[in-house]
């Protein structure tokens, strides 16, 4: 087995409430308890960034929203299934920063550096809230539709998958990665979070098909611009259920967070090992 130690920089991407914080907290739970593709080779030396989130999760409460200005990284010393020992830098931040990249005319230089120096990207998309808006051009108007959406709501609805595409385009540009040819770097993992909140018939489908149905442009953008071997899409349910903010889920707390959550692979099969995407990315 190799004893080589490496430093892998992971760029975690995802808008507000896309599941970054919960996943990172559950990732810690998983590698602490073992039986995963990624194994903890050394204890986490600086827990300050995730302490509060872990404390809430073990009580059966969902982690709090990460403040907009926050950006903090936690180092996990892990070994992957190829025998590589490495330090995985996993950052969490307020997802509004990603929205700003998509919507402003500039990219903060801190993010430019992250885009340039990262080895792989992990993109969180809250899939249950992604849906193409209905246009009279593509969907016959239902005159009895009860909801009258505000202009702002329509803006947000139509922006959905477009913001995700714009974020990726912009970060690729500042990284210096041309998409003239298909990309081999950075390797990209896409996590369709809140999988458990999808309608039951959709949960039976593969993540790729669900993305194609709910965000066809984004799906095509990923498929056309990344070489097939460098792109994977998983479904993700970090806790298998929506945890409350204030009144603890006692059953969840009693059994322990490490027994909850799964990823859904390309064949639509659930696997409780939440480290699978990270093992592939490293």
């Amino acid at each position: 087995m190799s004893t080589k130690t490496d430093q892998r920089q992971l760029l975690v991407l995802g808008g507000p409430a896309s599941g970054k914080t919960t996943y990172r907290t559950q990732l810690y739970q998983r590698i602490e308890h073992g039986n995963c593709e990624l194994r903890l080779s050394k204890s986490v030396s600086d827990m300050t960034a995730i302490d509060k989130d872990v404390a809430r999760l073990v009580k059966g409460l969902q982690p709090m929203h990460t403040h907009q200005e926050t950006y903090h990284s936690t180092d996990f010393s892990v070994q992957n299934t190829r025998g590589l020992t490495l330090t995985l830098q996993f950052a969490d931040y307020g997802g509004e920063q990603i929205l700003q990249i998509a919507q402003a005319n500039t990219v903060p230089n801190a993010w430019v550096e992250r885009a340039r120096q990262s080895d792989s990207w992990l993109f969180f998309i809250r899939i249950d809230s992604v849906r193409e808006p209905k246009s009279f051009i593509t969907h016959p108007v239902d005159a009895g539709a009860p909801v009258i959406a505000s202009e702002k709501a329509i803006e947000e609805q139509t922006a959905g998958q477009l913001d995700a595409i714009e974020t990726l385009q912009r970060l690729l540009f500042v990284r210096g990665s041309s998409v003239r040819e298909q990309l081999v770097s950075p390797r990209l993992g896409v996590l369709l979070s809140c999988w458990d909140e999808l309608p039951s018939d959709e949960r039976l489908l593969s993540p790729k098909i669900v993305l194609q149905r709910r965000a066809p442009l984004l799906d095509a953008f990923l498929e056309t611009n990344w070489r097939g071997s460098e792109l994977r899409i998983w479904g993700l349910s970090s806790t298998e259920r929506r945890l409350p903010e204030s009144s603890p889920d006692l059953e969840f707390a009693k059994k322990g967070p490490h027994l909850f959550g799964y990823v859904v692979n390309g064949d639509g099969v659930q696997n409780p090992d939440l480290t699978i995407p990270l093992n592939w990315l490293t």
Partner: peptide, 30 residues
């Protein structure tokens, strides 16, 4: 659809411009 026959969508420098056009066609709206 994300694609046109064998051509897949690969990006746009004017996503906001397209979105501004399309938003007029969205329903339900005020």
């Amino acid at each position: 659809s994300g694609s046109v026959e064998e051509f897949g969508f690969a990006g746009s420098f004017t996503l906001h411009g397209w979105q501004q056009l399309r938003k007029h066609t969205v329903w339900p709206s005020q």
